[in-house]
């Protein structure tokens, strides 16, 4: 009995060690692939003597990044703030609309038609109008981002409300729970995984929304940087701005993932259990 337990603990340790090595190995491979691509890019630009206004070499982009990191960082923060503001607004609107439909089903058709109408209007068409109305400040960017993000949140949250386990709904009805009680205890907590799935999609989208709106006219932000670089054919500056945008998008996405892990701790634990089984599987192979 005791021997068995020790054996299990020992095996667990070995397994975890193997897993760590494997994960680190995966990371190394990833970095290697990126560096390799950079090297090919650099040599290709060098060998073909492509001018920088058509295609800058990675080294030129890095030089620009190092030389202008302070202004890029400032522009990135402006865009990030607009994107997060819009994301917050869009998410709030999406959730509120889903809740309204949950309690008053009769609103569904009307809300959905309106939402679809807004969703299918190209942002490219809305953004300039908003800029004309609201000026070069952050307001139109926040609104454009919100318009871009509310719809997936609305759809997913509503789906989550409706995905409640019928057996639990029967139980709640047997207790004569009110719709509000069922919402608070069952539907809302159950919809959180759906909400986070939407946020994962929508978070990088929010950054793009803010940049597109800035492109249409802004006093600051990554979008303005890009537009300036584009009109001057300053490709290293354009690529550097894109690089900052990518880094920030990834950061926002990771933030969502971290918050999700906290909020959906029970799923997290289930996932962990799955991972363990997974590594057992690889060990056998």
């Amino acid at each position: 009995m005791t021997v068995e337990v020790y054996e299990q603990i020992g095996r667990g340790r070995i397994r975890n060690g193997a897993k760590n090595i494997r994960v680190n190995g995966d990371k190394l491979v990833g970095v290697g692939i990126v560096l390799g691509a950079m090297a090919i890019w650099e040599t290709a630009v060098f060998l073909t003597k492509t001018p920088a206004y058509l295609m800058p070499a990675p080294s030129a982009i890095v030089r620009y990044l190092l030389g202008h990191w302070w202004s890029l960082w400032g522009a990135g923060l402006v865009t990030l703030a607009e994107a997060l503001g819009g994301l917050l607004l869009g998410t709030a609107v999406g959730i509120v609309l889903a809740v309204l439909i949950n309690f008053w089903q009769r609103l569904e058709q009307g809300i959905m038609s309106l939402a679809l109408l807004i969703k299918s209007t190209p942002i490219i068409a809305i953004a300039p109008i908003l800029t004309i109305w609201l000026g070069f400040g952050p307001a139109p960017k926040v609104i454009v981002t919100a318009l871009l993000t509310f719809f997936p949140v609305l759809i997913n949250t509503l789906t989550g409300f409706r995905a409640a386990d019928p057996a639990i709904l029967d139980l709640m009805r047997s207790l004569d729970a009110s719709p509000q009680e069922t919402f608070v205890h069952v539907r809302w907590p159950g919809a959180r995984p759906f909400l986070f799935a939407a946020l994962r999609v929508v978070a990088p989208l929010a950054m793009i929304g803010a940049v597109v709106a800035e492109w249409m006219g802004a006093s600051s932000g990554l979008g303005r940087n890009m537009w300036l670089a584009y009109t001057n054919l300053n490709m290293p500056a354009l690529f550097a701005a894109v690089f900052v945008l990518t880094v920030l998008s990834t950061a926002v996405y990771q933030l969502v993932v971290v918050v999700e892990g906290r909020a959906l701790f029970w799923q997290h634990m289930e996932k962990n259990r799955g991972l363990q089984n997974d590594s057992v599987g690889t060990e056998i192979k």
Partner: peptide
């Protein structure tokens, strides 16, 4: 019911 129907959170 046949399912335990517990709230996982």
């Amino acid at each position: 019911s046949q399912q335990a129907a517990l709230l996982p959170w």
